[in-house]
């Protein structure tokens, strides 16, 4: 029995030495992700509605006309948005490839300026202190987008705030819609997720061969550990009791 325990112990120790580093990473990253509350990570607390509530619902009756004007439209919406220094009613049109704002009277397309984006971002910001934008960058193509925002959202404005959480808003270039919000805790969580799923490139593939290999080895470590615990607390106890 001693020799059997010795073998299991050797396997347990050697496998832990060779594959244990990932076990430590899984344990620490798992704990961090469990302790950070997911709603906080999603960052909805960082933003608030920037549009004004709609009162002129009768504008919605123009939607069939708008659909006829833009035959490739898949969806049309009404918003009251802060543009050019005041709130205006605008229709938002969604086609297969783009989203844009149009004027509710003549359905002409409206382009947003840099000032509009700044004004919208300041109204969206829900931090306790007054918003202070440190950097504003227009990202036109998917390849320009940082990893923290999905490539399908291009083109977007990246609005960075000078706060301790390093809040960053991504606003759609043609509509001013808040696409997503990021902050330091989210970025930290994302690194933890990357280390946990062992996909260091896209941070989304959970089925790499090396994660399967490490998971298998961890299973053997856990099984030999279980065997050693049984040796220590069950088999030896019984043997001692039997001897006595």
């Amino acid at each position: 029995m001693q020799f059997k325990a010795l073998k299991a112990r050797k396997v347990h120790r050697w496998l832990t030495l060779l594959f244990g580093a990932q076990l430590i990473i899984w344990s620490i990253t798992g704990t961090v992700m469990v302790l950070l509350q997911l709603p906080y990570i999603h960052g909805h607390h960082l933003s608030q509605p920037a549009d004004r509530p709609i009162t002129q619902f009768e504008l919605l009756e123009r939607i069939p006309e708008l659909a006829a004007h833009y035959p490739d439209a898949l969806e049309a919406g009404l918003v009251s948005r802060y543009l050019h220094g005041e709130y205006h009613y605008r229709f938002r049109v969604k086609t297969e490839h783009e989203r844009f704002l149009v004027h509710p009277n003549d359905f002409s397309r409206i382009a947003l300026t840099e000032d509009d984006i700044v004004a919208l971002a300041e109204r969206l910001y829900a931090g306790s202190d007054s918003p202070s934008i440190s950097r504003l960058t227009l990202l036109n193509t998917a390849s320009e987008l940082p990893r923290e925002v999905a490539s399908r959202h291009a083109p977007v404005w990246q609005v960075e705030f000078a706060d301790t959480r390093r809040t960053t808003f991504y606003l759609a270039r043609d509509t001013g819609d808040l696409v997503t919000q990021r902050h330091q805790a989210w970025r930290f969580f994302d690194i933890m997720w990357m280390l946990h799923i062992m996909d260091y490139q896209d941070r989304s593939n959970i089925s790499t061969w090396w994660i399967l290999a490490f998971a298998s080895m961890t299973f053997v470590i856990a099984l030999t550990g279980l065997w050693l615990l049984m040796q220590r607390y069950i088999v030896r106890g019984w043997r001692r009791l039997w001897r006595e």
């Binding site: 549009d51 509530p53 709609i54 619902f57 919605l60 969806e75 919406g77 938002r92």
Partner: peptide, 17 residues
């Protein structure tokens, strides 16, 4: 367009069709 129901909902920020 359900005008009466939309007015009763509260603060409506977006209506998409």
């Amino acid at each position: 367009v359900p005008m009466r129901q939309l007015h009763q909902l509260g603060d409506v920020y977006e209506v998409n069709v």
